[in-house]
Amino acid sequence: MRYKNGDLLVIPVLDQQYSFAQIVEDLPHGNVLLAVFSELVPDGRVREVANLELEEPVFLLETMDLRIKDGTWSIVGNLEVSKCIATPVYKVWVDPPGEFRMQDVRGNVGVPISPERASGMKFQKSFSPAVVEAALRGLHGLGPWRSAFEELAF
């Protein structure tokens, strides 16, 4: 299944409970930058897609597109990605010369940054679709919340 930026997905959480997610950016090598929202809906049916509140995701993360391609995460519409959802900038260590640099979501390495600035930034990391589903269960009290899920937070 082909997908594109702005596609709205329904993610099964547990027992006919679903959450919404949106593809913020289609990335190389079968990954997507995904904004995941907290709202739970029964049976995965979408009311009016245009009326969904998609401004404040609970998670913003990179994940593999496996669940999209196999149809587990169904595409139910497409909306423009909110301007409130900024594409992250990461830090990467470059050796030599032995310094932190900025890195965009596509892996492009940019300008050097100070260690102080780098301390407040994340390294780029991809999470499995199963982790996304487990984090949603934990968020809604339908499974354990693990401290590792905090890395997914928007």
Rank of each mutant, 00 (worst) to 15 (best):
M64W: 04
S74R: 13
S147D: 11
H29G: 00
N31M: 12
G77S: 10
V46S: 15
F123G: 03
L60Y: 05
E25Q: 14
G143D: 03
S19V: 00
L54M: 15
P28N: 03
R45Y: 11
S119C: 02
M64E: 05
M102R: 15
E56P: 00
P96W: 12
L27R: 00
P112G: 11
K125A: 10
G98Q: 13
S119Y: 04
E150H: 12
L27F: 00
V41S: 06
S126A: 14
S119A: 11
G107E: 03
R117A: 10
V46P: 06
Q16A: 13
M102S: 11
L33T: 05
H140L: 01
E62Y: 00
Q16V: 01
E116Q: 11
C84G: 09
V76Y: 08
V132K: 00
R47P: 04
L40D: 01
F100A: 05
E48H: 10
L34Q: 01
V24N: 05
E56N: 11
R67K: 15
E53A: 11
L79T: 08
P112R: 12
V81Y: 08
W93I: 07
G98A: 11
V24F: 04
P97Y: 14
W73N: 02
F149P: 01
L52A: 07
S74N: 04
N108I: 14
P129C: 05
R45P: 00
N108M: 13
I75P: 01
Q22L: 05
I11L: 15
F149N: 02
E151I: 01
A118R: 09
V131K: 04
L34K: 02
L61D: 02
D70Y: 12
L79Q: 14
V131F: 01
K4D: 10
R45V: 14
Y90S: 07
L40Y: 00
E55S: 14
G71H: 13
V58R: 12
Q17E: 06
I113Y: 07
R2H: 09
H140P: 02
V46W: 06
L9V: 06
R47D: 12
L79H: 07
E150N: 13
P96Y: 12
S147W: 12
L61V: 10
K69S: 10
W73Y: 09
K4A: 14
L152Q: 03
G107Y: 04
P96D: 10
P57I: 08
P57L: 09
K83E: 15
W145I: 03
P144I: 08
Q103R: 15
M64F: 08
N78T: 15
E48V: 09
V105A: 14
K125F: 07
Q17A: 06
L54K: 13
G98I: 09
G44T: 05
I85H: 11
Y18F: 15
A21C: 02
K4G: 06
K69V: 13
L52V: 06
L52Q: 08
V41W: 02
L40W: 02
L54W: 13
